[in-house]
Design a protein around this nucleic acid. Structure first.
Lengths: 188, 188
DNA sequence: GAGCTTAGTAATCGACTGATACCCTGTCAA
DNA sequence: TTGACAGGGTATCAGTCGATTACTAAGCTC
């Protein structure tokens, strides 16, 4: 029997790039920048390994694209969350929206991988610029005080790590319902 | 001229292990779990590559040892900081002490690498257990409320990332002077 | 000072991995 | 019909890297 080679649908390079970024994010998230292989990424995306390399030039460029995509998603999420709200309710709304993003453990780990890869100067520059831009963006959008702003980002970071560690007690509650934080640790 | 091979001082395996952990932490911090090579670690520690492997069995065991050492240091630092202080001043003292640790960028990055490596179940279990233990330890030592506690660790995490990104504006100030952790979200 | 234990090295290997070079084939305008 | 461009695969390499094996030598103990 001749194995008919499954007429693989052709896409525009742009669309394929997006698919590869998705697949790569999953691999990078689990195995890190160096640990993830272009081979595994290619398999997950359903294309050949050399084609993955060719679409982005180098593995590092692909990793950078994944970091950028991650920041893009968060930025868009914040934008939508704040839309049409009075200034004094926007920060809380963004917190809620980020809480939803926390369910995507893969995305969280990808973000951590970005920070972990800052030993490389290029990656560090990318991450620093995007993080600083996000920080300023939230500041402008919410009008929060510096202290509020720092706490906002600090809690976000804690949630990232708590999700990575699978420590639901710590993350669980984005402090919107600060009224009743789960009394884990309270002598049961 | 026969090169006399510099009579390298022999140490106990225990002492050598400690030196290797130090060297390995530096390499892991910069290049990540997979990116760091046992060869580079060995060179930095002044021993041969096979010996590094033999001292710990596997690269992963060495990485685990580095993670443990990191938590040990933080735990000891907190213990010393709280010693002899009334309960209501201990959390602030621990914050100050951690602020000093923040100058060691290498140690911060090593910690991030630990979180980033949680794609591996064994590493994740280690990191989760130690982090949870540290959390409970600070809780018991300080008697802080759950909300205070979470803010404490959240700020710590933000500082880690800020240091990795070299964003001094964000880290810089540990909120010791922050009389009251502002309920961000309260209309400023 | 003989003999055992322990610190440490040299040599080498097998598996892997990112990248390169080259070829194939739909599709669509002229 | 053709030809050229863009999407995509095959084959292959050159370099790494963690681990294993086998060996050497320092120091302790009796």
């Amino acid at each position: 029997m001749s194995v008919k080679p499954v007429p693989r649908p052709r896409m525009t390079a742009t669309a394929r790039r997006a698919e590869v970024v998705e697949a790569a994010s999953a691999e990078f998230a689990m195995r890190g920048y160096v640990g993830a292989t272009t081979e595994a990424i290619a398999r997950r995306a359903g294309v050949s390994q050399p084609y993955v390399v060719r679409l982005f030039g180098t593995k590092k460029a692909l990793f950078s694209a994944c970091c950028e995509a991650n920041f893009d998603l968060v930025t868009e999420t914040f934008t939508r969350a704040a839309e049409g709200l009075p200034a004094d309710r926007r920060l809380a709304a963004m917190g809620d929206a980020y809480g939803d993003l926390l369910n995507d453990r893969e995305r969280l780990l990808m973000q951590l991988q970005g920070y972990a890869a800052t030993g490389d100067p290029e990656i560090r520059a990318l991450m620093r610029d995007r993080y600083a831009a996000l920080y300023r963006y939230v500041e402008k959008l919410s009008g929060a005080t510096p202290a509020e702003l720092r706490t906002f980002f600090a809690i976000g970071m804690l949630c990232n790590v708590a999700a990575a560690l699978e420590l639901p007690e710590i993350m669980g509650s984005w402090p919107k319902a600060d009224a009743a934080p789960p009394p884990y640790g309270a002598a049961r």
